[in-house]
Protein backbone atom coordinates (compact mmCIF):
# COMPACT_ATOMS: atom_id res chain seq x y z
CA UNK A 1 0.00 0.00 0.00
CA UNK A 2 2.83 2.38 0.90
CA UNK A 3 4.50 1.66 -2.44
CA UNK A 4 1.28 2.33 -4.37
CA UNK A 5 0.91 5.62 -2.55
CA UNK A 6 4.53 6.52 -3.26
CA UNK A 7 4.09 5.84 -6.99
CA UNK A 8 0.79 7.76 -6.91
CA UNK A 9 2.35 10.77 -5.20
CA UNK A 10 5.39 10.94 -7.47
CA UNK A 11 3.28 10.44 -10.60
CA UNK A 12 1.17 13.36 -9.39
CA UNK A 13 4.25 15.50 -8.72
CA UNK A 14 5.73 14.75 -12.14
CA UNK A 15 2.42 15.31 -13.98
CA UNK A 16 1.45 18.40 -12.00
CA UNK A 17 4.64 20.12 -13.20
CA UNK A 18 3.92 19.38 -16.85
CA UNK A 19 3.61 22.61 -18.80
CA UNK A 20 0.93 21.14 -21.07
CA UNK A 21 -1.28 20.85 -18.04
CA UNK A 22 -0.91 24.51 -17.11
CA UNK A 23 -1.72 25.56 -20.66
CA UNK A 24 -4.90 23.49 -20.63
CA UNK A 25 -5.95 24.87 -17.24
CA UNK A 26 -5.40 28.43 -18.48
CA UNK A 27 -7.49 27.70 -21.58
CA UNK A 28 -10.21 26.14 -19.45
CA UNK A 29 -10.28 29.15 -17.12
CA UNK A 30 -10.40 31.49 -20.14
CA UNK A 31 -13.36 29.53 -21.50
CA UNK A 32 -15.13 29.73 -18.13
CA UNK A 33 -14.44 33.48 -18.09
CA UNK A 34 -15.72 33.81 -21.64
CA UNK A 35 -18.96 32.09 -20.67
CA UNK A 36 -19.77 35.23 -18.64
CA UNK A 37 -19.58 37.22 -21.88
CA UNK A 38 -21.73 34.69 -23.73
CA UNK A 39 -24.23 34.96 -20.89
CA UNK A 40 -24.35 38.72 -21.21
CA UNK A 41 -25.41 38.53 -24.85
CA UNK A 42 -28.07 35.91 -24.05
CA UNK A 43 -30.83 37.88 -22.41
CA UNK A 44 -32.60 36.06 -19.60
CA UNK A 45 -30.56 32.88 -19.70
CA UNK A 46 -27.22 34.19 -18.48
CA UNK A 47 -27.11 31.69 -15.62
CA UNK A 48 -27.92 28.72 -17.86
CA UNK A 49 -25.24 29.70 -20.39
CA UNK A 50 -22.61 30.18 -17.70
CA UNK A 51 -23.28 26.81 -16.04
CA UNK A 52 -23.56 25.00 -19.37
CA UNK A 53 -20.41 26.47 -20.91
CA UNK A 54 -18.45 26.51 -17.67
CA UNK A 55 -19.07 22.84 -16.85
CA UNK A 56 -18.56 21.82 -20.48
CA UNK A 57 -15.16 23.55 -20.43
CA UNK A 58 -14.18 21.61 -17.31
CA UNK A 59 -15.28 18.35 -18.96
CA UNK A 60 -13.59 18.95 -22.32
CA UNK A 61 -10.27 20.26 -20.99
CA UNK A 62 -10.21 17.60 -18.26
CA UNK A 63 -10.68 14.85 -20.83
CA UNK A 64 -7.90 16.38 -22.95
CA UNK A 65 -5.60 16.29 -19.92
CA UNK A 66 -6.64 12.73 -19.12
CA UNK A 67 -5.88 11.56 -22.64
CA UNK A 68 -2.69 13.56 -23.18
CA UNK A 69 -1.11 12.44 -19.93
CA UNK A 70 -2.81 9.07 -19.61
CA UNK A 71 -1.56 7.72 -22.93
CA UNK A 72 2.05 8.20 -21.87
CA UNK A 73 1.52 6.86 -18.39
CA UNK A 74 3.10 3.48 -19.12
CA UNK A 75 4.36 3.66 -22.71
CA UNK A 76 6.48 6.73 -22.04
CA UNK A 77 7.99 5.02 -19.01
CA UNK A 78 8.97 2.11 -21.25
CA UNK A 79 10.15 4.32 -24.10
CA UNK A 80 12.30 6.48 -21.82
CA UNK A 81 13.38 3.47 -19.75
CA UNK A 82 12.41 5.15 -16.48
CA UNK A 83 10.49 1.97 -15.73
CA UNK A 84 13.77 0.11 -15.07
CA UNK A 85 14.34 2.34 -12.05
CA UNK A 86 11.02 1.30 -10.55
CA UNK A 87 10.55 -2.35 -11.49
CA UNK A 88 14.09 -3.28 -10.46
CA UNK A 89 13.02 -2.41 -6.92
CA UNK A 90 10.71 -4.54 -4.73
CA UNK A 91 7.62 -3.32 -6.57
CA UNK A 92 4.92 -5.65 -7.86
CA UNK A 93 3.77 -4.82 -11.34
CA UNK A 94 0.17 -4.37 -10.22
CA UNK A 95 1.39 -1.82 -7.67
CA UNK A 96 3.02 0.15 -10.46
CA UNK A 97 -0.16 0.18 -12.55
CA UNK A 98 -2.37 1.15 -9.61
CA UNK A 99 0.08 3.85 -8.52
CA UNK A 100 0.19 5.30 -12.03
CA UNK A 101 -3.59 5.25 -12.32
CA UNK A 102 -4.24 6.92 -8.99
CA UNK A 103 -1.44 9.41 -9.65
CA UNK A 104 -3.08 10.70 -12.79
CA UNK A 105 -6.48 10.61 -11.19
CA UNK A 106 -5.16 12.73 -8.32
CA UNK A 107 -3.69 15.17 -10.85
CA UNK A 108 -7.05 15.44 -12.59
CA UNK A 109 -8.93 15.85 -9.32
CA UNK A 110 -6.68 18.72 -8.27
CA UNK A 111 -6.93 20.35 -11.70
CA UNK A 112 -10.69 19.92 -11.71
CA UNK A 113 -10.70 21.55 -8.29
CA UNK A 114 -8.85 24.55 -9.74
CA UNK A 115 -11.23 24.75 -12.71
CA UNK A 116 -14.26 24.34 -10.44
CA UNK A 117 -12.96 27.18 -8.28
CA UNK A 118 -12.67 29.31 -11.44
CA UNK A 119 -16.21 28.34 -12.36
CA UNK A 120 -17.58 29.42 -8.97
CA UNK A 121 -15.66 32.70 -9.15
CA UNK A 122 -17.33 33.34 -12.53
CA UNK A 123 -20.73 32.35 -11.08
CA UNK A 124 -20.24 34.68 -8.13
CA UNK A 125 -19.17 37.49 -10.47
CA UNK A 126 -22.36 37.07 -12.47
CA UNK A 127 -24.83 36.58 -9.62
CA UNK A 128 -23.06 38.73 -7.00
CA UNK A 129 -24.00 36.07 -4.45
CA UNK A 130 -24.12 32.30 -4.12
CA UNK A 131 -27.04 30.33 -2.70
CA UNK A 132 -27.83 26.69 -1.88
CA UNK A 133 -29.04 26.14 -5.47
CA UNK A 134 -25.49 26.80 -6.63
CA UNK A 135 -24.39 23.50 -5.08
CA UNK A 136 -26.15 21.71 -7.97
CA UNK A 137 -23.14 22.01 -10.35
CA UNK A 138 -21.08 20.05 -7.81
CA UNK A 139 -23.13 16.95 -8.73
CA UNK A 140 -22.30 17.50 -12.40
CA UNK A 141 -18.64 18.02 -11.52
CA UNK A 142 -18.67 14.73 -9.60
CA UNK A 143 -20.01 12.97 -12.71
CA UNK A 144 -17.31 14.68 -14.79
CA UNK A 145 -14.73 13.25 -12.39
CA UNK A 146 -16.24 9.79 -12.83
CA UNK A 147 -15.87 10.22 -16.59
CA UNK A 148 -12.22 11.14 -16.07
CA UNK A 149 -11.76 7.97 -14.02
CA UNK A 150 -13.10 5.94 -16.97
CA UNK A 151 -11.09 7.81 -19.61
CA UNK A 152 -7.85 7.46 -17.61
CA UNK A 153 -8.50 3.73 -17.16
CA UNK A 154 -8.90 3.32 -20.94
CA UNK A 155 -5.83 5.49 -21.62
CA UNK A 156 -3.80 3.42 -19.16
CA UNK A 157 -5.04 0.17 -20.67
CA UNK A 158 -4.05 1.25 -24.18
CA UNK A 159 -0.80 2.64 -22.86
CA UNK A 160 0.11 -0.88 -21.70
CA UNK A 161 -0.63 -2.24 -25.16
CA UNK A 162 0.33 0.35 -27.70
CA UNK A 163 2.22 3.50 -28.66
CA UNK A 164 1.18 6.91 -27.27
CA UNK A 165 -0.26 8.06 -30.62
CA UNK A 166 -2.42 4.97 -31.14
CA UNK A 167 -3.43 5.05 -27.47
CA UNK A 168 -4.62 8.65 -27.93
CA UNK A 169 -6.62 7.75 -31.03
CA UNK A 170 -8.24 4.71 -29.37
CA UNK A 171 -9.04 6.52 -26.12
CA UNK A 172 -10.48 9.54 -27.86
CA UNK A 173 -12.58 7.29 -30.13
CA UNK A 174 -13.96 5.49 -27.10
CA UNK A 175 -14.75 8.79 -25.40
CA UNK A 176 -16.64 10.04 -28.44
CA UNK A 177 -18.39 6.71 -29.07
CA UNK A 178 -19.31 6.52 -25.38
CA UNK A 179 -21.45 9.65 -25.79
CA UNK A 180 -23.46 8.16 -28.66
CA UNK A 181 -24.01 4.58 -27.53
CA UNK A 182 -27.81 4.98 -27.56
CA UNK A 183 -27.70 6.17 -31.18
CA UNK A 184 -25.29 3.38 -32.07
CA UNK A 185 -27.63 0.74 -30.70
CA UNK A 186 -30.62 2.32 -32.40
CA UNK A 187 -28.73 2.38 -35.69
CA UNK A 188 -27.88 -1.32 -35.34
CA UNK A 189 -31.49 -2.24 -34.67
CA UNK A 190 -32.65 -0.24 -37.67
CA UNK A 191 -30.31 -1.93 -40.17
CA UNK A 192 -32.14 -5.31 -40.05
CA UNK A 193 -28.73 -6.95 -40.25
CA UNK A 194 -28.14 -9.45 -37.47
CA UNK A 195 -24.40 -8.97 -37.68
CA UNK A 196 -24.51 -5.17 -37.45
CA UNK A 197 -27.16 -5.34 -34.78
CA UNK A 198 -25.07 -7.86 -32.82
CA UNK A 199 -21.91 -5.76 -33.09
CA UNK A 200 -23.63 -2.50 -32.08
CA UNK A 201 -25.35 -4.23 -29.15
CA UNK A 202 -22.02 -5.68 -28.05
CA UNK A 203 -20.39 -2.24 -28.27
CA UNK A 204 -23.33 -0.76 -26.38
CA UNK A 205 -22.64 -3.02 -23.42
CA UNK A 206 -18.83 -3.04 -23.76
CA UNK A 207 -18.05 0.65 -24.09
CA UNK A 208 -18.56 3.09 -21.22
CA UNK A 209 -21.86 4.90 -21.50
CA UNK A 210 -20.73 8.50 -21.05
CA UNK A 211 -24.16 9.87 -21.93
CA UNK A 212 -25.42 8.72 -18.53
CA UNK A 213 -22.78 10.86 -16.87
CA UNK A 214 -23.64 13.97 -18.85
CA UNK A 215 -25.97 15.99 -16.65
CA UNK A 216 -24.56 19.40 -17.54
CA UNK A 217 -27.62 20.67 -19.45
CA UNK A 218 -29.98 19.38 -16.79
CA UNK A 219 -27.88 21.06 -14.10
CA UNK A 220 -27.87 24.31 -16.07
CA UNK A 221 -31.66 24.20 -16.05
CA UNK A 222 -31.72 23.68 -12.30
CA UNK A 223 -32.71 20.00 -12.40
CA UNK A 224 -31.54 17.94 -9.43
CA UNK A 225 -29.63 14.68 -9.89
CA UNK A 226 -31.54 11.76 -8.45
CA UNK A 227 -29.96 9.62 -5.75
CA UNK A 228 -30.54 6.56 -7.95
CA UNK A 229 -28.52 8.00 -10.83
CA UNK A 230 -25.85 9.12 -8.39
CA UNK A 231 -25.52 5.61 -6.93
CA UNK A 232 -25.84 3.82 -10.28
CA UNK A 233 -23.18 5.94 -11.95
CA UNK A 234 -20.81 5.61 -9.01
CA UNK A 235 -21.13 1.81 -8.95
CA UNK A 236 -20.94 1.58 -12.75
CA UNK A 237 -17.73 3.63 -12.83
CA UNK A 238 -16.21 1.65 -9.97
CA UNK A 239 -16.98 -1.70 -11.59
CA UNK A 240 -15.88 -0.57 -15.05
CA UNK A 241 -12.61 0.87 -13.80
CA UNK A 242 -11.91 -2.27 -11.72
CA UNK A 243 -12.37 -4.53 -14.74
CA UNK A 244 -10.32 -2.30 -17.03
CA UNK A 245 -7.44 -1.82 -14.59
CA UNK A 246 -7.42 -5.57 -13.93
CA UNK A 247 -7.10 -6.14 -17.68
CA UNK A 248 -4.27 -3.58 -17.82
CA UNK A 249 -2.51 -5.40 -14.96
CA UNK A 250 -2.87 -8.74 -16.77
CA UNK A 251 -1.33 -7.27 -19.93
CA UNK A 252 1.41 -5.55 -17.95
CA UNK A 253 2.32 -8.68 -15.96
CA UNK A 254 3.34 -10.38 -19.20
CA UNK A 255 5.21 -7.42 -20.61
CA UNK A 256 8.96 -7.55 -21.16
CA UNK A 257 11.16 -4.49 -20.96
CA UNK A 258 13.98 -4.94 -23.44
Amino acid sequence: MARIWSITWHTFKEAARDRVLYNLIVFALLMIGASILFGQISVGIEGIILVDLGLSSIAVFGVLMAILIGIGLVSKEIERRTIFNVLSKPVHRFEFILGKYFGLLLTLFVNTGVMAAGFYVALFYQKRSLGPEDLLPLGAIYFILLQFALVVAWALFFSCLSTPVLSAVFTFSIYVAGHFLGDLRFFGQETHSRLVSGVTTLLYYLLPNFADFDVITRTAHGEKISGVLFTANSLYALLYVTVLISAAVLVFEEKEFR
Partner: peptide, 9 residues
Protein backbone atom coordinates in the same frame (compact mmCIF):
# COMPACT_ATOMS: atom_id res chain seq x y z
CA UNK B 1 20.36 0.44 -15.99
CA UNK B 2 22.34 1.22 -19.13
CA UNK B 3 21.91 4.90 -20.07
CA UNK B 4 19.52 5.56 -17.20
CA UNK B 5 16.72 8.07 -17.53
CA UNK B 6 14.66 9.83 -14.88
CA UNK B 7 11.54 11.94 -14.60
CA UNK B 8 12.23 15.37 -16.09
CA UNK B 9 10.30 17.37 -13.54
Amino acid sequence: PENPSFYDN
